[in-house]
Design a protein around this nucleic acid. Structure first.
Lengths: 208, 208
DNA sequence: GTTCCGGAACTGACACGCGATTCCGTTGTG
DNA sequence: CACAACGGAATCGCGTGTCAGTTCCGGAAC
């Protein structure tokens, strides 16, 4: 990843550092007060820099949210792909374990810092058509990943052969989405909710 | 409903009519261009009235979104409560039918006019803390309704006795939420998605 | 039936205020 | 000392909300 040409001088480091700090500060502000309610001045003040300096690092206000969202998306997709290849499992029990592991990863990201789901789900979509599309893209990506897991399971035979892979993936992701939103109010009983999701997935709701 | 004292004069009718037209026009604008991107002038122009007139009917810009959302919420809760009392069913088969019926109602509201989910899920939460809370309240309300259905099923024995009613309700609503969001891009295969949701609920995903 | 009157409703030019972006004098650095 | 980075005052455009003038309407007087 970071192995390409690195002409990083001494002070060049400082610049990149400030750049990241600005992104972080912007994230803080956007998540707390909302995108439209925060001004460039707010972001700058939080860092103790002049707001003119901001424009030495980013084109404009709209420019920076993209970078903020970039980071969040990277964080999430990173957590999802780490050590969780679809073909790493071959039985229902293993699959169940893996889904629990993935659910835990997501719960950690969303639960530890509710600002993440707030920004991604509540703030971002209302900024722009373009940003709304980005969020929808993210959903589609997530659906594709989930679908890959399901397909693998169907092939190996531990999931229903007649599973509508694509739509079931959306349904499952919907439950995860619902969980993420729930953390906005009650970051506590994440565990129980996550368990309930898995019970629905594996056992359904009907009595035996 | 509309049986209370009605001192409605002739011209009074006109006022109420215009009032509603303004709400509808505002809905159109907010859903198309987004809340922050639309000005009062846009709403007024769409109706061919001066934007000053707007202020004779509503306090300010923030005021009217509340009314717009009111109407949407009323439309949804109306569709959900109509002929669908939790205690109207007593077997799993009936319950399954009822959930299909409810799903169809929601699919109709969301699918027929994607502007409804767009405004409610993508625009509204980013307007305001207060509005975000309203949307969360709506989720909570929906969860409570779903939980009531589940509780009834547990009591009559056609749903799992050890069902975590509250959290399972959230999970199910999450799937519905996911469906609503899906309509933003593909208003078509609503049927298949809805079916997939029900399969997950009743049969789970594992192979028998 | 016609005219006139009073008040309600409507209008759009205007006065703000606010925040994004720019610009240039200042400050720090090699 | 030259050069780059910084800061914040100044600029600029935009959208909200106001208000004084105008139009509209129903009903009373003739």
């Amino acid at each position: 990843m970071t192995s390409s040409a690195e002409p990083v001088s001494r002070a060049e480091r400082k610049k990149q550092e400030l750049r990241r700090e600005i992104i972080d500060a912007a994230f803080d502000c956007f998540a707390e007060r909302g995108y439209h309610a925060t001004g460039i001045a707010d972001v700058a003040t939080r860092l103790g820099i002049g707001h003119g300096t901001f424009y030495r690092y980013f084109q404009n206000k709209r420019d920076i949210v993209d970078h903020v969202v970039d980071e969040l998306v990277a964080r999430i997709t990173g957590a999802l792909t780490a050590e969780n290849a679809p073909d790493a499992v071959s039985t229902l029990a293993e699959y169940r374990e893996q889904s629990a592991r993935i659910g835990e990863s997501l719960a950690r990201i969303f639960g530890e810092d509710p600002r993440v789901p707030r920004l991604l789900l509540f703030e971002a979509p209302g900024i722009d058509r373009a940003m709304a599309e980005r969020i929808l893209d993210l959903f589609d990506l997530a659906a594709a990943m989930t679908a890959a897991y399901l397909s693998h399971g169907v092939e190996l035979g531990y999931l229903r052969a007649d599973l509508d892979v694509g739509n079931t993936a959306r349904a499952i992701n919907g439950m995860i989405l619902g969980s993420a939103i729930t953390t906005l109010r009650t970051p506590e009983d994440q565990r129980a909710l996550s368990e309930a999701v898995r019970r629905v997935m594996y056992d359904g709701i009907a009595s035996s």
